[in-house]
Design a protein around this nucleic acid. Structure first.
Length: 669
DNA sequence: GTAGGCTGTCATCGT
DNA sequence: AGACGATGACAGCCT
């Protein structure tokens, strides 16, 4: 405590900014404290200046110097209601909800209004992929749909619903997205049921049964078929929990799914729609594995209940979900000095965590939009209504092409993919659970090792007549687990079985964690390699530049020497002496001198005796061996003065002056 | 049919 | 001593 007196602590709320923004949005909707009216196409929108100015350069410019009340801004004609309203919503919610129909309009308005955080990069990335990918993704869908009529029906239903959606609430302009959503969801839900019901019938008829669930992992299908009555949570739960951990282990990823039951019933049963802004939270924070919390699936007798609870537990470290409409306060975990934040969840949508500043808003926005990619998600739009397809409705295989997109955040797709896999497993579990009655006993003889093992686990669990759920064996903490064992008097066999299940499940999770770490390590090493490679290139370029400078300097010296020799009119002997005192090996001056002397010697044979001097006394060819004394200049001058010309044999005073020598030394230095 | 990736499980070691 | 996590190795399944 004494140290506390001297230490400073900082409490940083992870929910404050979101709370403020939410309150502002509520104020806007209630027209409280709004101080500006924005007129777009004869429609008025009340808002707060500060909010608009914070998000838009246009508003910022127009509002900065205006202090009066009742400020009305008429937006330019190019700004439409269709494009502006989502932007206004984005300003207050950080979420941009768009459809294929209005994304261009939004883009245009964002450009005109200079909406920050929705800059060019975002739309440059979104738009081409959005529209260009329609065909390609449809191909993907087609390929997938070829497997099953059901998928075709689902796609058609999604398309139909799109169409219905387009025409359904066209009149609702004020809140088009919000109003469309329920209709869309409900209609879609109905159609999903309708389209899939025949498949179930066909399944019963043993005609298209496999095709309907052919996309499901046979292993889990078998497993689910085997465990049947809601025990699928046993093994799907660790998946979910682990996925959270594994995601957190990624350089930057996190994920959460909506957990509200109402969401399940109203919205998520239909998968992802174009308006469904299901997105993954993608904080860069690297989180160490967090201990698996107690399983949130308490009851699992009902397959549907299990499906929901399985999804609930996807956010392993998250608190239990609140009731519908209730805003879940963000939870923040400080691990390894980095913050992993769980963003709010409302209306079944996930929002990118605005507090995560390690990643640019644009990246997160793109991630947000990509996660709700209509083309991808539409293929799963009509997930069986009872499946736990809430939130994640993207197949892992469908994320493969996303990996190929060059976007900084796409490394997170690995995490998303993992999450999707978990979701798929969960979905399969749920699906298989609810179709288990249809498939009762089918393929029971063809279990593979894993499925057999898992099914055996479930079967044995039921045979053991354990007084608690199998999932509890895995999800409970050590103390709780032991407490539970003490509470229930178990036989030796039951104890062994329980311990074995717990051990294997824990180890399964650990293996996933280990592999994830390994992949992360590989990823980091690859990044390090890339960094070092770029650094090497940079140093190489720098060296090349320095070499060029050195060469240029050498040439300058040469020119300078030529000029000096021309002005001084030095004789070869004088050059020799001169070279002696400028004999720094690396000095281009010396080299130049030697060259000059050699030319003399070659042209005048009588000067040959001087040659040895160049190689020995002068030290021209001995780089670095010459050190200059303080009286170098004096020696040089005296030597030069005492030098006799070989041509005449007469002593001749050197014509170079001390000033020239000084100049020479200075130039050289 | 095959290669590669993924996943579960076991064995082992260290904490 | 027992529980637990990490990890290599192996096997099976899927794409």
């Amino acid at each position: 405590m004494s140290s506390c007196k001297t230490s400073e602590f900082t409490f940083q709320s992870s929910v404050h900014s979101t709370h403020v923004l939410r309150c502002l949005d509520e104020q806007r909707q209630k027209d409280l404290l709004c101080d500006v009216t924005v007129v777009v196409e004869n429609r008025s929108f009340r808002a707060h200046r500060s909010v608009l100015a914070s998000c838009s350069e246009y508003f910022s410019a127009r509002m900065t110097n205006h202090t009066g009340q009742g400020f009305i801004i008429n937006l330019p004609d190019e700004v439409t209601t269709e494009g502006f309203e989502p932007l206004l919503q984005f300003a207050y919610t950080s979420k941009l909800l768009f459809t294929k129909e209005n994304v261009l309009e939004i883009h245009n308005c964002a450009t005109v209004l200079g909406f920050k955080n929705l800059d060019k990069a975002c739309f440059d990335f979104i738009l081409p992929k959005f529209f260009d990918s329609s065909k390609s993704s449809s191909k993907v869908q087609t390929i997938q749909c070829c497997k099953t009529k059901c998928w075709k029906a689902k796609d058609e239903s999604s398309i139909n619903n799109d169409g219905a959606n387009d025409t359904g609430d066209a009149s609702s302009v004020t809140q088009p997205l919000k109003k469309q959503e329920p209709n869309f969801s409900s209609s879609l839900s109905e159609k999903a049921v309708r389209t899939c019901s025949p498949c179930q019938v066909e399944t019963e008829a043993d005609t298209e049964a496999e095709s309907d669930y052919s996309s499901l992992c046979p292993k889990y299908r078998k497993f689910q078929l085997a465990c049947g009555k809601g025990q699928s949570c046993t093994d799907t739960e660790p998946e979910n929990t682990e996925s959270t951990c594994s995601l957190n282990c990624l350089p930057c990823s996190s994920f959460e799914k909506p957990e509200s039951e109402d969401i399940v019933s109203n919205k998520t049963t239909t998968g992802i729609t174009e308006e469904n802004a299901m997105s993954f939270c993608c904080p860069l924070a690297k989180q160490s594995p967090i201990e698996t919390p107690p399983n949130l699936c308490s009851g699992k007798t009902s397959p549907q209940m299990c499906s929901m609870t399985s999804s609930c537990s996807l956010g392993g470290s998250f608190p239990p979900h609140p009731s519908a409409g209730e805003v879940v306060e963000s939870s923040s975990v400080q691990v390894m000095g980095k913050e992993c934040t769980v963003s709010d969840r409302r209306n079944g949508t996930f929002c990118l965590n605005p507090r995560t500043e390690q990643r640019s808003t644009v990246e997160m926005e793109v991630a947000n939009q990509l996660s709700a990619w209509p083309d991808i998600c539409s293929s799963r739009v009509s997930e069986p209504a009872s499946a736990c397809g809430q939130g994640v409705a993207v197949k892992s295989s469908e994320l493969q092409w996303l990996k190929q997109l060059e976007c900084p955040f796409l490394r997170d797709l690995g995490a998303v993919e993992a999450q999707v896999r978990c979701s798929e497993v969960t979905s399969r579990s749920a699906e298989c659970s609810y179709i288990s009655s249809i498939h009762s006993g089918e393929d029971s003889d063809s279990f593979d090792t894993e499925g057999e093992s898992e099914s055996c686990t479930s079967e044995q669990a039921s045979l053991m007549q354990l007084p608690f759920s199998v999932e509890g064996i895995v999800s409970l903490s050590r103390n709780d687990f032991q407490q539970m064992l003490k509470t229930h008097r178990l036989t030796r066999e039951q104890l062994d079985f329980v311990h074995d299940v717990r051990r294997r499940s824990k180890n399964r999770i650990a293996a996933r964690r280990c592999r994830k770490r390994k992949l992360d390590c590989i990823h980091n090493l690859e990044c390090e390699i890339e960094r070092l490679r770029s650094e090497r290139e940079k140093l190489t370029a720098e060296k090349r530049q320095l070499d060029q400078m050195r060469l240029k300097t050498w040439e300058n010296y040469s020119v300078l020497y030529d000029r000096l020799c021309a002005e001084a009119k030095l004789q070869p002997e004088q050059l020799q002496v001169f070279a002696k005192y400028t004999s720094l090996g690396e000095c281009p001056f010396s080299t130049h001198l030697s060259t000059k002397m050699q030319l003399y010697h070659c042209s005048e044979p009588e000067l040959q005796p001087l040659a040895p001097c160049l190689g020995t006394d002068t030290g021209i060819f001995e780089p670095g061996t010459s050190t200059r004394s303080a009286n170098t200049q004096n020696h040089l001058a005296s030597d030069l003065r005492s030098t006799e010309t070989p041509h005449t044999g007469n002593s001749e005073t050197m014509s170079i002056s001390p000033d020239q020598i000084c100049k020479l030394e200075t130039d050289k230095s």
